[in-house]
């Protein structure tokens, strides 16, 4: 109990110490957006008759008529009071957009990561148990394939086979069948919300929508996870304690799972953390192909149209997620290996 309290305090301290980094990200993105060529006011004033006057109206509306340092101060003040500005693209507050869309991205990424971990760790372990065998080469081949095929290609292929040809999957348009009704929003995670509402048909429908995009994302990240599992398992299988465990006649699964894998899992957790953060921001192609209403495709659209507020909000969000994931990884370290403490 005391150890847990200490962990929480340390975690809190770690989080506080990352605040300056977040502030830096905030200011840097703000300035970067303004340095990039492309004037959002001109872009959004693109009605058939929009002239100078319309451009000025939009510029004023976006606060771009003020000098940059003043804009920055105003923006910092707004962020401090929890307002990330308004998106021109969707016409909504950025905080509202992100709150709507982040659960969609998280749900997809977590599912994809789960699928990836559940397949990559056993594959890596199998490959490490029989290095150089057919299994090892098979796993290597599978990983190479997964990395080579870009996610949008595997996504389009999956759609073509499971939706277009076989008709097994539902139409790849978003998180839930367009004709179905949504559960009352509680967490924003549809799988959880449907369960809370006790609507199992809805849950099944949402799950069916989720499975193809999650698979195409998982395929891409199986490789790094499986490779790192294999490498670190090889080291740990060759170590003295495993030899000892074997020599005292422990059952093989106990040797592999309890002794070898537990010691080999640290690097896998690290990579999984990095993979998760990258996936969350970089799954834009999957989101586009499956019309998934996530944060990454939102940020890309905003970037193309130089819509400042959403891009800044997105980068801040990603930085925050990164900090939290790193923290989580550190805590998991402690669980996997009690000798490690976070400080």
């Amino acid at each position: 109990m005391q150890a847990l309290g200490a962990t929480v305090i340390r975690a809190g301290r770690r989080f506080l110490s990352s605040l300056p980094a977040l502030f830096g990200v905030l200011v840097f993105t703000f300035l970067l957006m303004r340095v990039l060529p492309g004037d959002p006011a001109v872009f959004f004033a693109s009605g058939p008759n929009a002239g100078k006057e319309e451009i000025e109206v939009i510029r004023k509306q976006m606060g771009l008529n003020k000098p940059v340092p003043e804009q920055l101060m105003l923006y910092l003040y707004d962020v401090g009071s929890g307002n990330l500005g308004r998106s021109m693209m969707t016409g909504q507050l950025v905080t509202k957009d992100l709150r709507e869309r982040l659960p969609a991205s998280l749900e997809l990424t977590v599912t994809a990561l789960l699928i990836a971990l559940l397949s990559a760790v056993p594959l890596g372990v199998l490959a490490a148990l029989r290095p150089g065998s057919v299994i090892d080469h098979g796993v290597r081949f599978f990983c190479a394939l997964g990395v080579c095929v870009p996610t949008f290609v595997s996504g389009l292929l999956l759609i073509y086979v499971f939706y277009y040809l076989l008709g097994l999957a539902p139409d790849p348009t978003g998180r839930v069948d367009i004709f179905a009704s949504l559960p009352p929003r509680q967490t924003g995670f549809l799988l959880i919300d449907f369960l809370l509402a006790g609507d199992f048909d809805g849950w099944w429908a949402a799950f069916r929508q989720l499975i193809l995009p999650a698979l195409s994302m998982a395929l891409f990240v199986v490789a790094p996870l499986a490779r790192i599992t294999r490498a670190s398992m090889l080291v740990s299988l060759g170590s003295d304690f495993v030899r000892t465990a074997r020599s005292v006649g422990l059952p093989w699964w106990r040797v592999v799972v309890t002794y070898a894998l537990r010691n080999a899992i640290l690097p896998v957790i690290t990579i999984a953390g990095i993979v998760f953060s990258t996936m969350l921001g970089a799954n834009v192609l999957v989101e586009k192909v499956f019309s998934w209403p996530g944060v990454a495709s939102y940020a890309l659209d905003a970037l193309l149209s130089s819509d400042y507020a959403p891009v800044q909000g997105f980068v801040l969000l990603m930085a925050t997620v990164f900090v939290i994931v790193n923290l989580l990884v550190d805590i998991l370290y402690g669980i996997a290996d009690p000798r490690v403490t976070i400080g």
Partner: peptide
């Protein structure tokens, strides 16, 4: 009437061909 955004043009083509749109 449902107006739905589907960013990927190939997906839109699939949808209308399968009769879902």
């Amino acid at each position: 009437v449902i107006v739905q955004s589907v960013p990927e043009p190939a997906t839109r083509a699939n949808l209308v061909e399968r009769g879902d749109a």
